[in-house]
């Protein structure tokens, strides 16, 4: 039955008017049949929960109380009056912006180095694989690798002390002045390959003729880089930066496994702040309000991402 419906082959001409009509209607349904399972799943497990979290955020004692009352914007007011929320927001933005900037800088530098023909092709393809490695590691594993390296008795302190850059054992993850920077550094290490891979693909797509023409006009390497390479890569730079921003903002396991948001609140991010509200204090309504704030920030960046994607 299904097979004859989905066939694109024309219906036998003998079929009556009514039959042909329903056949046409059915044929129009075919694409919908293909996209239904995914759509259904995403509506049920994405849109519906988002509506739920919005509802929770407007209630008093969601999940915990059997008949939680409507509380208006009270939860949002409570959240906005909490200084830890603002500190988390600020730290999330610092962590995210620094990460994206350095992901881009390192990604571009490595992509340019790997793209030159000055390097032996075999070495180049081996290095390409090795440079992607950090990306393949789970956040939890990245967290414990860096906890080992940055342990007060660890190798990083030892090397820095031998070089006389520091003269005492720095407690990178447990001092309020260094924790956020240590965390950001670990995340920079883990995340640059996405930029590198995308920019490398972009570099290979730039027509050689552009460079030749500029060479004839007497442009030097720096000018070629600035007036050809960067503008040609711009669409990729913009879309990957936006995606990276959104994903980095959602950071959770890396923080949870290194500092847990501490010491005190020195590395509290919006995600850990929200998680603790929900699953340590069981304040699901407050947590929902905070989660909605995160969603709104994410969605506004997503809006620019989609606009940018569609313009291309």
């Amino acid at each position: 039955m299904n097979r004859s419906i989905t066939a694109l082959a024309p219906a036998p001409p003998k079929a009556g008017k009514k039959g042909r009509l329903s056949y046409k209607t059915l044929r129009k349904l075919v694409p919908y049949l293909y996209v239904t399972p995914a759509t259904l799943l995403l509506v049920l497990l994405m849109l519906f929960p988002m509506a739920m979290v919005l509802r929770y955020s407007l209630m008093d004692g969601a999940i915990m109380k059997r008949d939680a009352a409507f509380a208006g914007l009270q939860n949002y007011i409570t959240i906005f009056q909490n200084p830890v929320f603002w500190q988390s927001l600020y730290q999330t933005l610092y962590f995210t912006i620094m990460s994206v900037v350095f992901h881009f800088v390192l990604g571009l530098a490595f992509a340019l180095l790997l793209n030159t023909n000055r390097v032996n092709p075999t070495i180049r393809s081996i290095l390409r694989v090795l440079f992607i490695l950090p990306w393949l590691f789970t956040a939890v594993i990245i967290a414990i690798i860096w906890r080992l390296l940055l342990d007060p008795n660890g190798v990083v302190n030892s090397v820095l002390m031998t070089l006389h850059i520091i003269n005492f054992k720095v407690e990178w993850f447990s001092s309020t002045s260094t924790a956020i920077h240590a965390l950001t550094f670990a995340n920079i290490w883990a995340g640059y390959p996405l930029f590198m891979v995308s920019l490398l693909a972009g570099l290979q797509g730039i027509s050689k003729e552009l460079y030749e023409a500029a060479g004839i006009d007497g442009a030097n390497e720096l000018q070629k880089f600035w007036y050809i390479t960067i503008p040609q890569l711009m669409p990729i730079i913009i879309s990957i930066s936006l995606l990276d921003f959104i994903w980095t903002m959602q950071v959770f396991p890396l923080v949870w496994m290194t500092t847990g948001g501490g010491p005190i609140y020195a590395t509290e991010m919006l995600s850990t702040f929200t998680y603790k509200l929900a699953f340590a204090q069981y304040e699901f309504s407050l947590a929902s309000a905070s989660a909605i704030v995160i969603l709104i920030i994410s969605m506004s960046v997503t809006y620019f991402y989609i606009k940018h994607q569609q313009r291309r």
């Binding site: 995403l42 739920m52 959770f252 969603l295 989609i306």
Partner: peptide, 19 residues
Amino acid sequence: IISTQTVPPITLLIPYFGM
């Protein structure tokens, strides 16, 4: 579908827990 890529997991975690 493109925008679902960017929904923060923490936002969905609370309703998922309830569900």
